[in-house]
Design a protein around this nucleic acid. Structure first.
Length: 465
RNA sequence: GGUGGCGUAGUCAAGUGGUUAAGACGAUGGUUUGCAAAACCAUUAUUCAUCGGUUCGAAUCCGAUCGCCACCUCCA
């Protein structure tokens, strides 16, 4: 039985979409003001995992992920760069999708940009004003009155009394009825430069929380099956989304709230001042690959804090090479004749059952990987002692392929450089001639290029060190 | 200050009342190899931050203490 931990109830609940097997999924996307860092990508990979597992379980997923292309940071960034907001955000939107591709993220069905939905946002604000859930302040900003929405705090379980002492509530929050009221429409100020849209309340721009309510509704309807995001978004972002959406529609906004935990770096929060801030690009530039980062991000349960280290990234590389090696060996063995032995079939079935149970249990990837690696060891034993039948290899490979539809880590990201391939061939010749000195010399050269070479019955195989 | 999460081997990380406490990486010894690597075998937590308590039984439940992380108005 597929269960997810629902942040709203703080418990695991059996998952069933509202309509048959169609899942309406909304995930909070990036604010495109900079290159995304691996912490951001922990969330993105978690979304991808959810999607892939839902698909594996036979659901059709309709996935919407927003692109926040207007807010304080994007406006500030565009001004600093001296280019229009749209040009600025286009740059980082493209970079974001490139990074996603490197991480083998399936594209969402729709990735709506906030700036492309301003009329709908204005319409929602108008509805909220008409229904008296929102009020217009003196400067033309529109605020949501949380006092009018009794369920406020339902998701985050924060009691309103506690919110008053919030350390970051600005002292100059004029004009609000309640300090916790949040902005739906932000009146234009000089800092916004040319970024503004006309509205019934004067020029301005949408508040951040508004876009998700609007775009989720636009593409998925009033009630979503799953809404996912980082744990930091629980309050206020998601709380505010609930308030806006439910006040406007009178219907439940989200059935399952899923939140992923933070990524830590060297046991601490990732921050620029600590010098442990990594963008995906930085990591790729250091010679690691997207699938290695992906594997590392998948190696812990999404709701548990995960500690990122380069040691861990290297461990991911080793684990992936082990899977690659087995895959290559199985591919060769699979061409042999022979039915799968009952013993082998049983082992594969057991692995599949454990794998499924683990992922059904709130996407427990750690446990799922354990099931996979149990079978990996078993398969290696069969290869080792010559018991592997063609059918065995095909059965194991079939499961590995199935598992990889979810993990998406099989296959190297990049081929070895030509130079490396050439050296490997040269070394194979030297070995054939039993010129061991020359062979060792070439191997040393390869090591200098960051590669190692293995002699297998099928010929040399190069790997990254 | 309020709220929530976490602390399991050298590292990463499952497990949340009874299991030999998963799995990965690393390390050491062995088999194998031209030498290696990979693979396999063996070893690597009598113990789950600490201290108490509940229970026939606790890593798992309760309390206290220590440490880390996050949220408390625009950070995934």
């Amino acid at each position: 039985m597929l269960v997810f931990t629902n942040t709203e109830t703080r418990s695991k609940q059996p998952f069933k979409p509202l309509a048959d097997s169609d899942v309406k999924l909304y995930t909070c996307g990036p604010t495109v003001y900079n290159f995304a860092h691996i912490g951001n990508f922990r969330a993105i990979v978690a979304y991808d995992l959810l999607k892939r597992w839902l698909a594996a379980r036979g659901f059709r997923v309709n996935h919407v992920m927003n692109i926040t292309d207007v807010d304080d940071k994007t406006i500030r960034g565009a001004r600093a760069a001296g280019i229009p907001l749209s040009a600025f955000t286009a740059r980082y939107t493209a970079a974001f999708f490139d990074d996603c591709a490197a991480l083998r993220i399936l594209k969402p069905d729709i990735t709506p940009a906030a700036t492309a939905h301003i009329p709908q946002m204005i319409a929602l604000v108008r509805t909220l004003v008409d229904k008296e859930f929102a009020y217009v302040a003196g400067d033309g900003s529109v605020y949501f009155a949380i006092g009018k929405f009794p369920a406020y705090g339902r998701l985050s379980h924060l009691d309103r009394g506690g919110l008053r002492d919030g350390a970051r509530v600005a002292q100059d929050e004029y004009d609000k009825d309640n300090v916790c009221d949040f902005v739906l429409w932000k009146a234009w100020t000089e800092d916004d430069g040319g970024v503004k849209w006309d509205s019934p309340w004067g020029p301005g721009r949408p508040g951040w929380h508004l876009e998700c309510s609007v775009m989720a509704r636009e593409y998925l309807g009033d009630t979503l099956d799953v809404h996912m995001g980082g744990e930091d978004l629980v309050f206020p972002h998601h709380e505010n989304e609930i308030a806006q959406s439910e006040a406007a529609t009178g219907k439940p906004f989200v059935r399952f709230w899923l939140h992923n935990a933070y990524l830590q770096v060297d046991g601490r929060k990732m921050s620029k001042s600590l010098g442990n801030f990594h963008t995906l690009r930085d990591i790729l530039a250091r010679g690691y690959t997207g699938r290695e980062v992906r594997y590392l991000l998948l190696s812990a349960h999404y709701r548990q804090p995960l500690n990122f280290t380069f040691t861990g990234l290297h461990a991911a590389r080793s684990a992936l090479q082990r899977l690659d090696d087995l895959r290559a060996n199985l591919a060769r063995a699979a061409s042999a004749a022979g039915e799968a032995r009952p013993e082998a079939q049983a082992a594969v079935d057991a692995a599949r059952a454990a794998w499924t149970a683990a992922l059904d249990d709130d996407l427990n990837t750690s446990a799922a990987l354990a099931a996979l690696f149990d079978l990996v060891r078993q398969a290696n034993v069969w290869l080792q002692d010559g018991a592997m039948q063609g059918g065995d290899a095909r059965a194991v490979l079939a499961f590995m392929d199935e598992a990889d539809k979810v993990l998406a880590v099989a296959g190297a990201d990049d081929a070895a450089p030509e130079e490396v391939t050439r050296l490997a061939a040269e070394r194979a010749e030297a070995r054939a001639a039993k010129n061991w000195a020359r062979a060792d010399e070439v191997r040393k050269k390869l090591a200098e290029l960051g590669f190692t070479v293995e002699d297998t019955p099928a010929g040399p195989r190069v790997k990254r060190l």
